[in-house]
């Protein structure tokens, strides 16, 4: 056993890590697996080995997410994807992909520790996000299966709509976890009071 312990991004300084009201609920999702796959040639992601590994072909359409076996695969940029899901599963796929891409120009990087992940839900979620993020998240413009990278306040954010409730997954650089939490929780409170 390691004598090193794991801490979540909101482990410091923030007493509450969940907020809930009639309109909106917000919580930190700890120890959520994140990896990034960057390839130079896009046909690499179509390789049979990788498709077997992911259980699905990585999405070619910008700003979409597909459900693979065990992990979700989100488009991040041309030839760049995020693998999202259970930490161990992400790690397992990463290791296999690293082996598969050993001789290619590619980066397969576990970035679980680089992100803070939040889940925001219920009818007020869109209004809370609209107070911090310039994306149009109206159902006509955004839907489950869609993702986008944008801004949450002054910090970069990855947003993914998980279901129609609606529920959104937000990922920010973990060094902005406290900042994002302050902004999100204050916006949640403002929504409930006005």
């Amino acid at each position: 056993m390691s004598k090193l312990e794991r801490m979540s991004p909101l482990g410091r300084g923030i007493s509450a890590t969940a907020y809930s009201s009639e309109f909106v609920s917000l919580r930190q999702q700890t120890f959520f697996g994140v990896a990034k796959v960057i390839v130079r040639k896009s046909d690499l992601l179509g390789s049979p080995e990788l498709e077997a590994l992911l259980g699905v072909r990585a999405p070619q359409m910008a700003n979409t997410v597909v459900q693979g076996s065990g992990v979700e695969i989100a488009w991040a940029a041309p030839n760049q994807w995020l693998l999202l899901g259970d930490e161990a599963e992400v790690a397992r796929i990463c290791a296999a992909a690293q082996t598969a891409f050993r001789d290619e120009t590619a980066l397969v990087l576990q970035l679980t520790h680089a992100y803070a992940v939040f889940q925001i839900e219920k009818t007020g979620a869109r209004d809370v996000l609209a107070s911090l993020c310039p994306l149009d998240l109206h159902p006509r413009a955004f839907a489950p299966g869609r993702c986008a990278q944008s801004l949450l306040g002054d910090a970069g954010v990855f947003i993914q709509q998980c279901n129609e409730a609606p529920s959104f997954r937000l990922m920010v650089d973990q060094t902005y976890a406290g900042y994002a939490w302050r902004l999100l929780s204050e916006a949640c409170k403002s929504l409930s009071s006005s």
Binding site: A62, N63, A77, P134, A148, Q149, L151
Partner: peptide, 10 residues
Amino acid sequence: PYCGARAEIE
């Protein structure tokens, strides 16, 4: 060209 119309601040 990839993500569509977005605000200038991005």
